[in-house]
Computed example of a mutant assay.
Amino acid sequence: MPQQIAVITGAGTGVGRAVALELAATGWQLVLAGRRAEPLRETARLCGGEAVTVPADVTDPVAVDALFSETAERFGRLDLLFNNAGTFGAPTPVEDLGHAEWRAVVDLNLTGAFLCAQAAFRLMKGQDPQGGRIINNGSISAHVPRPHSVAYTATKHAVTGLTKSLSLEGRPYRIACGQIDIGNAATDMTAAMSSGVRQADGRIAPEPTMDVADVARTVRHMAELPLEANVQFATVMATAMPYIGRG
């Protein structure tokens, strides 16, 4: 099987880094994207030093075009986009959320995901052999909200619509699109879970977490299916977290 090429956004930390390590260990060639160069270099080092690092702000159309142009120039094709870059934003009651804070979350979680998917779609549609796979990082919040998370929850519900639209429009071109919804993977972004986070009834309570490597293995399974098969939606979560019955 020829070496496969993947672009991972938000690859400097957390889920993005874990997925990079998992794919590198199984022979993928990686293009690692993120806003900060140093964490990307550290991810590349942990992957064995072979990964390409491209500092890029996925909310900037020019930066996104440059990211996928460099991928095409280096490797001639793209087999996988893991659309992972995102932010929760500061937990804020809906009536207090400022316009700038709303826009920052929407621009990164939704517009950034769209811009990267659009660029990947163009590349996959035009390459020979045609096709590829896009995996969007949704969230448990694509199903149910947390308190004080209106911007994050709204964007993750919107990512589900993006996933469905890409799946439909990709059919004629062998472009498969799926979504992984993650709950309480242990990363820097979820560090507060173990000490206590606000629940639907107003209590502050600790929540169980799971190893982020389990998320990475799930992404790899989705990524390595033949294009004739697709995991449309996968939910991977800490077994005992308050999701079933939340609220």
Rank of each mutant, 00 (worst) to 15 (best):
I5M: 15
I5K: 10
A6E: 05
I8H: 00
G10H: 09
G10N: 08
A11G: 04
A11M: 02
T13W: 01
A20D: 12
L21S: 06
A25E: 12
L30I: 07
A33T: 01
A33L: 05
A33Y: 00
A37H: 10
P39E: 14
L40E: 02
R41G: 02
E42N: 08
L46M: 10
C47G: 14
C47V: 00
C47I: 06
E50C: 01
E50F: 07
D60E: 13
D60A: 08
D65K: 15
T71F: 05
E73Q: 11
R74F: 07
R74D: 11
F75S: 02
F75A: 07
G76N: 05
G76K: 05
L78H: 01
L80G: 09
F82K: 04
N84M: 01
F88E: 15
G89Y: 00
P91Q: 00
P93E: 13
E95F: 02
L97Y: 08
V105T: 11
F114K: 03
L115E: 12
A120V: 11
F121P: 03
L123Q: 14
Q130H: 06
G132T: 06
R133W: 09
I135W: 06
I135T: 09
N136D: 14
N137H: 08
S139V: 09
I140K: 01
A142C: 03
H143P: 00
H143A: 10
R146L: 12
P147T: 09
H148S: 07
T153P: 00
T153Q: 02
T155Y: 06
T155F: 05
H157A: 13
V159T: 03
V159Y: 01
V159F: 00
G161E: 02
L162T: 11
L166T: 07
L166A: 01
L168H: 07
E169L: 10
E169C: 04
R171W: 07
P172L: 07
I175Y: 07
Q179R: 07
D181M: 04
G183C: 06
A185T: 08
D188K: 13
A192L: 08
A192M: 09
S195P: 06
G196T: 10
R198H: 03
Q199G: 03
G202R: 14
P206Y: 14
E207Q: 15
P208C: 14
V212P: 03
T218D: 04
T218F: 09
T218P: 04
V219C: 07
M222N: 04
F233P: 05
A234H: 01
M237D: 09
P242D: 07
Y243T: 13
G245Q: 10
G245W: 13
R246M: 12
